[in-house]
Design a protein around this nucleic acid. Structure first.
Lengths: 244, 244
DNA sequence: CGGGGAATTGAGGCTTCTCAAGCTTAGTGG
DNA sequence: CCACTAAGCTTGAGAAGCCTCAATTCCCCG
């Protein structure tokens, strides 16, 4: 039905190839690594915050999330990990996990090949840079967007990310999360996510049936966050060369 | 009046020493680097998103912010950079800035010494790891905390960070931002920040006069975010060893 | 003393939350 | 083949939190 669900190893290979040019040896190493993935059942914690980590991992299949739980039960999903993503060990002397990672669906992971070759090393670095960009985008989303905008922006981000891993069509992708999980990521309640999704369907912005999301170009435009210079703020400023 | 505003270079030295054990050579290199800092006036953009970066920098004095501006004028401060913090160049082949950095106050920066020695390298890595932890904390703050909790949690974080740089007392520190800037960081309006601060003062949680914040242990307790396992969620789970 | 940015206050409205109930769907066992 | 169940989705009503707009006061600085 959907031709964007290729074989398992394709996700990692597709994403890393897009981030850096890999040698045939490196591609072979990646294929080899993904051949015997470990399984993790949904709702299991993969890493505990504060625990020592045991090397980098790659997501072969399924969705995971970095999660922070509050003592009163509130939950915030900090970021998502989807096929092709890399969970990198801190380059620190003390490789301590800074957040818990939970499997949001059944998932498959494998150890990431060592970064002793140039192409892979570059791919891992690019992956880390992308991850950081996603964190920053998540902050802007939570801080300054309405519920409607948050959901739309998140959908666009996930489509883009899955596309990189060869796991999305031009405007549709498989979205295995519940509305409650989405709410925990977007700082909303599941009730409000539900109502907002209905509004988006009414506006023709998206469809979501049977675990597949289809985004539509037309429909009500939503805010598009554009980084601009401070010059456009009230007490404007200009970029400067550093002066002593 | 406050003995926690030592000489300029002390901030960088204090923070990096706390993050890793530095040799005398390394300490000397840091002292040398901070001796001729570049000045940046408040409201100036230091780096533009998308621009090539030109090496790593250290904050000698002043407060900066990574900022995302929306096309309609909304602003989100993604993270803060305070004395002792490092603005690290991407380890990427393409060192492209992912966000604009704006000076929120007059600031002084200097190039960071090259990481060709073990202690410094470790210190930079630890600094980067801390930065990521701050981003994650910011996400949890924006996603799941009330205005009251956001402000309190943010104050605690900044006190802790400034303490590391030797720029804070046991419970007070210099806070040069306006309420509007704080609002842009915490996803609120300046009006609501103002009213919430009044409630906190009424509750005896903090004082804020003349640019100095004093936090008080007593007073109304606020939510303390504790990372815990998924086991405590409704459909609980246990941490697992990876199984094939 | 005047100017200007920042802080403060008030009134009213909108977004989002809370609580609660009903519905739908997929899976299960008799 | 059909109750039965459990999870997820949907809907309603009312309340709370936060925002908007606007005016006023405070405070620093020239």
């Amino acid at each position: 039905m959907f031709n964007h669900t290729p074989t398992a190893e394709a996700a990692v290979l597709s994403r890393l190839s897009a981030l850096s040019s890999l040698s045939e040896d490196e591609r072979r190493a990646l294929r080899l690594a993904t051949e015997l993935p470990h399984r993790v059942a949904a709702c299991r914690d993969l890493v505990q915050a504060g625990q020592r980590t045991s090397g980098s991992l790659m997501v072969v299949d399924g969705w995971l999330g970095r999660v922070k739980l509050f003592s009163d039960g509130r939950r915030q999903i900090l970021s998502f990990l989807v096929p092709g993503d890399i969970i990198q060990e801190a380059r620190n002397a003390q490789p301590i996990a800074v957040s818990t990672i939970t499997a949001l669906t059944d998932a498959m992971l494998c150890p990431a090949p060592a970064t002793d070759t140039e192409g892979l090393c570059e791919a891992y670095a690019a992956s880390a840079a992308l991850d950081e960009a996603h964190l920053l985008r998540q902050i802007a989303r939570l801080g300054r967007m309405s519920a409607y905008e948050r959901i739309h922006d998140w959908m666009l981000e996930m489509r883009e990310r899955l596309l990189l891993a060869g796991r999305a069509g031009a405007d549709d992708f498989v979205m295995p999360l519940t509305q409650e999980t989405l709410a925990d990521a977007l700082g909303l309640t599941s009730v409000h996510v539900n109502r907002t999704l209905q509004a988006m369907r009414r506006d023709g912005v998206l469809e979501w049936r049977g675990g597949v999301v289809r985004l539509k170009q037309h429909g009500k435009p939503v805010a598009d966050p554009v980084a601009r210079t401070a010059a456009e703020r009230p007490r404007g400023a200009q970029a400067v060369a550093l002066t002593r």
